[in-house]
């Protein structure tokens, strides 16, 4: 069995596909839908901030890669997603079209960006510490573990100053490496519940068809149904991403090949680590 995996927001823009007419088609759809053209990443006149632009760039790349794979006659038996990868994953499953995936990416991104106007938030990547140690550090600094990627790769989220302090403690506790990324909102934490009303209103404006290809979500590792999708799109922003559990579930269901459909290869690297431990 083959699984296509849709990664979350990239941390940087790359122009790898920008000269490909197929990518440009998706970029134009993005411009029409959101006002932002990822081919003109740095110079676009769009008023979307950098985080939302990166989210849209990631979504466009995933939609482009999906289109490429399909044009080669390839298709998955299952689909999985990580964080903001949910929108192109829904498009790949047949639940929504590409335009809706881009509109949702943009509107939800803009909604979260408003949180960043009131307070500075950050994501902190910690590599090398086990979960037990990191959970204590997160609790010490009143922040959250937002991504459980592998037994030694986690993402923390919360207020910027608190994440900074937690990373100092993580380093002192023996983390192999730490890095911080400023972000608009404390993604995948209960702090997002402050804007769930707004998010629910956005999601309610769209229709979700039954996925034609099973899409396994990253919280409880169950296949999403059309009826469950709107609530999941809000809940997933308030709860962590359990990638290791998702990958292990997919393997136990018989998936033997994983194809990352988006920017970079972070998910494949997480999988490689998980495989090395089993």
């Amino acid at each position: 069995m083959i699984c296509w995996m849709y990664p979350g927001q990239p941390i940087a823009f790359t122009d790898t596909h920008c000269s490909d007419p197929e990518f440009q088609k998706i970029a134009l759809l993005c411009q029409k839908t959101t006002g932002f053209n990822p081919v003109e990443f740095g110079s676009s006149s769009s008023d979307l901030n950098e985080s939302v632009r990166l989210q849209l760039f990631g979504a466009c790349t995933s939609l482009y890669r999906t289109s490429q794979l399909k044009s080669q006659g390839r298709g998955p038996d299952l689909i999985a997603e990580h964080s903001m990868g949910i929108y192109p994953a829904l498009a790949a499953s047949g639940s929504i079209d590409s335009e809706t995936a881009l509109a949702l990416t943009s509107r939800i991104g803009v909604s979260m960006a408003r949180m960043g106007l009131q307070r500075a938030y950050a994501l902190g990547c910690v590599i090398g510490l086990p979960l037990g140690s990191l959970a204590v550090i997160a609790a010490n600094h009143d922040i959250y573990i937002a991504n459980f990627n592998t037994s030694r790769h986690f993402l923390l989220a919360g207020e910027r100053g608190k994440v900074d302090a937690a990373l100092v403690e993580a380093t002192a506790s023996g983390a192999f490496s730490v890095s911080i990324f400023p972000c608009d909102a404390p993604l995948h934490t209960p702090l997002i519940e402050a804007i769930t009303g707004e998010l629910q209103q956005i999601v309610a404006e769209y229709h979700f068809a039954e996925p034609r290809i099973p899409l396994v979500e990253h919280i409880g590792q169950t296949p999403l149904t059309a009826a469950a999708i709107p609530a999941f799109l809000v809940e997933e922003l308030c709860r962590p991403v359990y990638w290791e559990a998702t990958y292990c579930t997919l393997r136990s269901r018989g998936v033997t090949r994983f194809q990352e459909v988006g920017v970079g290869s972070a998910l494949a690297k997480f999988n490689r680590w998980i495989d090395s431990e089993t």
Partner: peptide, 11 residues
């Protein structure tokens, strides 16, 4: 390579 690869090489 990146930091994820680095830890894999460490192990």
């Amino acid at each position: 390579l990146d930091s994820i690869d680095a830890l894999q090489l460490v192990v």
